[in-house]
Simulated assay, not measured.
Amino acid sequence: MSNDPGRTTAEDQPTAGQEPAADAPSRRLPAPGAALLEVLGIAWLAAMLWSTRAAIGSAEAGSTAISLSAFALPGVISAALVAGAAVALAATNLLARRTADRATLRFLIAVGTGLLVGVATATAINLTYLDTATTNVIAGTAAAAAIIGGAVAAARTAPVVGAAVLSGLGVLLFVVAFSRARSPLFDLYGGDGGSQEALVSAANWVSRTESLLAGLLAGLLAFGYLRWARRHAARRDPDAADLRWPAYLLAGAGPGLLLLTAEVILRIGGRSLLDLASALSDADAVAQTSLGTSRIDNGIWVLFVGALVSLIAFGRTLTPPPTDNE
């Protein structure tokens, strides 16, 4: 190569019929286990739809069904978000194996896949749920969540999306399992004291414990998945570069972002249902406000704790550079 910056040599020029390396489309780093995540995401969405249908169907028509629908809708939205992202991730993974990576095509495939999941979800709700005023709200918000989840899967770094999907599923499953421990913890934190102050304090501590444990789980799952993705990529290409710290930070924060995104979708698409539930009585209005605040607090805690845990776990894998004396 010439030392003159204003001149180029034949080595600097692309050969005839060959595009410059900077302009050539690259292959997207795949997310391992995307097919399994797809199955798990669909299974979780189906389970949430079934449990919501069973709860609403067992209630008497009217105020009870509306209240139960408002209570169950956040879980349906979160499940639809994860399912849309998981199915779209599997679709874009398949695309990456067959063709060179192109951002526009990847985005169209991801959003289209999310749309298919959303339409299928809305159709299942309308066909199996009772024909009530809340059915269309549940169907519409679930479809919107699936489309948004599909769009998320179009991100350039597929392993980060896969880590967020896996840790998101882990957090959602943990929240359901933790419900069995709420009552013993409530008593442990002094909730059986009888006073209103003791009840509120115990409830807050139970909520914080749940959020901290969920964030810890999110960070560990995200870190473990990204390390697995790194080993998987190294087997395919020993020279593949490792993901840097922002990827671990974003993956650990993924479940918290998922919960907060679900809350935004709920407050926009499900506003009419929340208003109906709040209008039933003063107690219902207070309950809906309290639940909304609790969901936001939980999402923020999971976001920051998950990101911090994943980043710390990644930092412990780093080795210091060798010194001149070694």
Rank of each mutant, 00 (worst) to 15 (best):
T157N: 07
D237H: 04
A181P: 13
N325K: 14
L273K: 08
V165C: 10
S51V: 02
R98V: 01
M48W: 01
A85R: 09
G168E: 07
L89T: 10
T9W: 03
N204V: 08
T123S: 11
D239G: 10
F186A: 09
E263M: 06
Y225I: 14
A234H: 14
S63V: 13
L36G: 05
L173K: 15
H232Q: 12
R7K: 14
P322H: 02
L105N: 15
L249N: 13
A124G: 06
V76W: 06
A214W: 01
T15H: 12
P238E: 06
G193C: 09
A202K: 14
G168L: 02
L95R: 12
R316M: 00
Y129H: 11
I265F: 00
L280K: 11
T141H: 14
L188D: 11
F174C: 08
F186L: 05
I296R: 08
L115S: 02
V264K: 10
A146F: 03
S207P: 03
V302N: 04
L273C: 07
A251Y: 03
L213A: 11
A279P: 09
N93S: 06
E197W: 05
S58D: 06
S211L: 01
S26Y: 12
S195W: 13
D4L: 02
V175W: 00
G118V: 10
A253C: 01
A218Q: 01
T323K: 15
L318N: 09
V76N: 05
V176A: 09
V165Y: 00
F186V: 09
D324T: 07
L257V: 00
L291F: 01
L108S: 08
L127V: 10
P14T: 08
N204C: 11
T289Y: 08
G17K: 12
F186Q: 06
A35L: 09
T135W: 06
A80L: 00
R230Y: 01
L318K: 08
A240I: 11
E197L: 02
A55V: 02
L274M: 15
G219Q: 06
G315S: 09
G190Y: 01
N136R: 12
A177E: 13
I147F: 09
F223S: 10
T135C: 05
T123M: 15
L260N: 09
V206F: 05
L49Y: 05
A218K: 05
V264F: 00
T141F: 08
P321W: 01
L127F: 04
A241R: 10
G270C: 07
A59T: 04
L130P: 10
R316K: 01
S183H: 11
P5W: 00
P184S: 07
A251V: 04
L185A: 02
T123C: 10
P25N: 13
W50T: 07
G191T: 05
S290N: 11
A124L: 07
A65Q: 15
L173H: 05
A43P: 14
A144N: 13
P321A: 07
T293A: 06
A247D: 08
A103S: 11
G252S: 12
S294H: 13
L221K: 12
I300E: 12
R53G: 00
V165S: 03
A10M: 10
L95N: 13
G168M: 03
D23H: 06
F107I: 15
A144Y: 10
G270Y: 03
P238M: 04
A24W: 12
R244G: 14
L318F: 00
L217I: 13
S179H: 07
I300R: 10
G299A: 02
